[in-house]
């Protein structure tokens, strides 16, 4: 747990006057699951977009595996081994599940047969085997999330950034998704998980990073973070303090 796989140093992203991310620094360690929480608009997704190259950061540095990926394009970042999913799912709608994931697998192989084989394994892994030839557009939300998961895994990432993969799922689906995340983690892939659902973050993360107004509020073990008064106030609101105490 001592070597950081990802180091974010003094990252800032300003949209005109708005400081969406403001001088943010944190490390992600090899093999851990880091939960990122914060109220709406606290800069979670913006941070993801800066790390993965979708936004050009205003200032700061991002190191992956000791190499700077600051200001690089999303495809370069993905080639280095950072996978991601999107808050709003983005399947290749007209392609089948298999074709979607095969496209991802092509990052590590030139051969169609090999890519299809990798894809088949990943599709099975996320539990979509019975829908492998279904057109992605017609999948339910949970299945589209599974698909994005499989597509990202097919690129063989070392680090996977999950942007609210649990949003919109019911309790049973959340449990299934949690199991999936744990199995991915068991494969040795480092995970950064942005979530709104409290239960998810506390049960899943080794460490939690709390953002507020684009800056780091605190970080630490889930239980410690949850009992920090400033977190309860900023993230959960004052009345929520009692609820947390009862948990």
């Amino acid at each position: 747990m001592s070597t950081p796989i990802l180091s974010v140093k003094g990252l800032s992203k300003h949209f005109d006057g708005l400081k969406a991310v403001d001088n943010l620094s944190f490390d992600v360690f090899k093999g851990e699951i880091l939960g990122v929480i914060g109220p709406n608009g606290s800069g979670k997704t913006t941070t993801f977009n800066c790390i993965t190259g979708y936004y050009k950061s205003t200032a700061g540095e991002v190191l992956f595996d000791g190499k700077s990926i600051t200001g690089r394009t999303p495809d370069f970042v993905a080639q280095q081994g950072i996978g991601r999913t999107f808050q709003v799912t983005r399947p290749f709608g007209d392609m089948t599940v298999w074709e979607n994931v095969t496209t991802g697998a092509f990052l590590r192989t030139m051969h169609l047969m090999e890519a299809k084989k990798i894809a088949e394994q990943e599709v099975e892994f996320v539990g979509l085997a019975d829908k492998i030839n279904v057109v992605a557009r017609s999948l339910s939300i949970i299945d589209q999330r599974r698909l994005e998961f499989a597509r990202a895994l097919a690129t063989k990432p070392k680090l996977l950034l999950l942007d609210e993969v649990m949003a919109g799922l019911n309790a049973q689906e959340v449990d299934e998704a949690l199991k999936l995340v744990h199995r991915v983690s068991a494969m040795g892939i480092t995970l950064v998980v942005v979530e709104h659902v409290m239960k998810v973050i506390t049960s899943i993360s080794n460490r939690v990073l709390v953002l507020n107004f684009g800056a780091k509020l605190t970080e630490g073990k889930p239980a410690d973070v949850m009992s920090t008064p400033s977190v309860i106030e900023a993230y959960l609101g004052k009345g929520f303090g009692d609820y947390v105490a009862n948990c």
Binding site: P74, R90, P91, G104
Partner: peptide, 14 residues
């Protein structure tokens, strides 16, 4: 085909 469907998602897989 992937680019034709969704450029953002295409970039994310390299």
């Amino acid at each position: 085909t992937a680019i034709g469907q969704d450029e953002q998602a295409a970039m994310a897989i390299g």
